[in-house]
Write a protein that binds this DNA or RNA. Structure first.
Lengths: 248, 248
DNA sequence: CCGAAATCGTGCCATATTTCACAATTATCC
DNA sequence: GGATAATTGTGAAATATGGCACGATTTCGG
């Protein structure tokens, strides 16, 4: 569980190396922390826009499943809880998908954004940590079908060796090797805080470039690695600020 | 598990009713969505600053426990992964806590921010949903000691009646009643998406003013209720955008 | 007790993000 | 078929957020 923050969506841009800026400082930053020029430097699309896309896909798919064929930015905005202008602006970063006087085709747009996010394929994921949280994540169906746990690691010698579906829990020492061998690009970190950085380093060494961090550790990662934080406790702790004695 | 978003940190201001603005529109927005003028309208402190405070507390407490008595904004910044200027600015919203030439007292500042966040007391929390996720949350120790699950609800008749510690899982129909009776201000929503809005409404009717939402539903809540989203799937889905064919 | 070094708090500027508002285009209805 | 209504995409303006840079203080080492 947790709040999400981000980190390093600074890179991207397989080609088009916009600026000549070497971005020497940017070590690991992270949204939960700073907020490096994810767009200017990158010349790319603001990360905040990217983070909204999954919600668009979800909502559009839902509407499509309900049989709604097209939707205006205004109606979509009401569903999602944002302004119509924001939706139009966000989409405009990627092209023109709407039809004046009509709106957007739910199915078409959902598919297009899915492709933009590269959700039109399945991603293998490495899960580190097979305690309560790790197990819960492994069993969780919500990541499917785009994400599939392809390898599980745990430092405890009792747990490594344990089976989960067709997988055997492996010792953390094998992370780099296995992540590399299976060409895994995504890691989920659900270990105790003390082991988080080590596990992250091993995953990155093996080729992982996206990490979902369930720990409260501020991970230090190179600029080409994206990190998102899941921090329910922090989310909770920040909400109490707004609670006053009695109601209003 | 999930990414965190926010919603409605627009209110606040027990006293000091800054503007006369009635903020008539602001219905439920939410950061995952829009980002209403959480500071101007409220005259208060930017929500983004509030969301960073838990990280400050965590880090300062850690340092204090290690025996570090004082820390400069620069050093703290390195630990957290933000700029020193941001830390100084964030803190300046609440007062002057540093000592020139020296820095901040770790223990003192940790305590001060804790009090600002109202973490110097225990909050009762209502948990809705006692499936896999709900159970994991109930067992999770990370929320302690500031938060304590004081009531658990589930719509399934098999599950309601079940015991957890000294609690009995109650049917969702009793949410409003029990939340009100126990003066619970915080709710955790871990039910299936179809039941989320109903559960939220019941909690709010009972007096809850802060909701941690583990579902992907965009909750509609009045302006005096804060919502934070936990959305690991969305976080994951947005990271794949940055993954390119081969490495860089 | 003094000068150099450290460090805060903050005015002011730079960037980023959101929103307005409107021309352009398409749909709809009679 | 033409007038009216709906709706997009986007320039420009408004807000919000972040960070530089420096005066003011305080510490520190003789």
């Amino acid at each position: 569980m947790a709040t999400v923050g981000e980190s390093n969506p600074s890179h991207r841009q397989p080609a088009a190396e916009t600026g000549t800026s070497a971005a020497p400082l940017a070590d690991r930053n992270g949204n939960r922390v700073s907020s490096r020029p994810s767009n200017l430097v990158t010349g790319g699309i603001p990360d905040i826009v990217i983070r909204r896309l999954p919600v668009y896909v979800r909502t559009l798919s839902l509407l499509a499943d309900r049989g709604v064929e097209s939707v205006s930015s205004d109606e979509l905005a009401r569903h999602i809880g944002v302004t119509a202008a924001q939706i139009r602006r966000d989409l405009s970063y990627f092209g023109k998908f709407g039809k004046q006087g009509k709106g957007y085709s739910t199915e078409l747009l959902a598919g297009t954004i899915s492709r933009i996010l590269q959700l039109d394929r399945q991603w293998d994921v490495a899960l580190a940590g097979f305690g309560n949280l790790g197990r819960a994540i492994a069993h969780y169906r919500g990541f499917l079908p785009a994400f599939r746990v392809a390898a599980i690691f745990d430092s405890s010698s009792e747990r490594s060796g344990e089976r989960f579906n067709e997988l055997t829990v492996q010792p953390v020492e094998r992370i780099t090797e296995i992540v590399a061998a299976e060409k895994i690009r995504i890691g989920i970190i659900a270990v105790r805080t003390g082991a988080a950085q080590d596990v992250a380093d091993r995953m990155i060494a093996g080729g992982a470039r996206a990490l979902l961090n369930y720990t409260t550790v501020v991970l230090r990662v190179p600029a080409n690695v994206t990190v998102r934080e899941i921090d329910p406790v922090g989310a909770m702790q920040s909400m109490t600020y707004y609670l006053d004695e009695r109601d209003d």
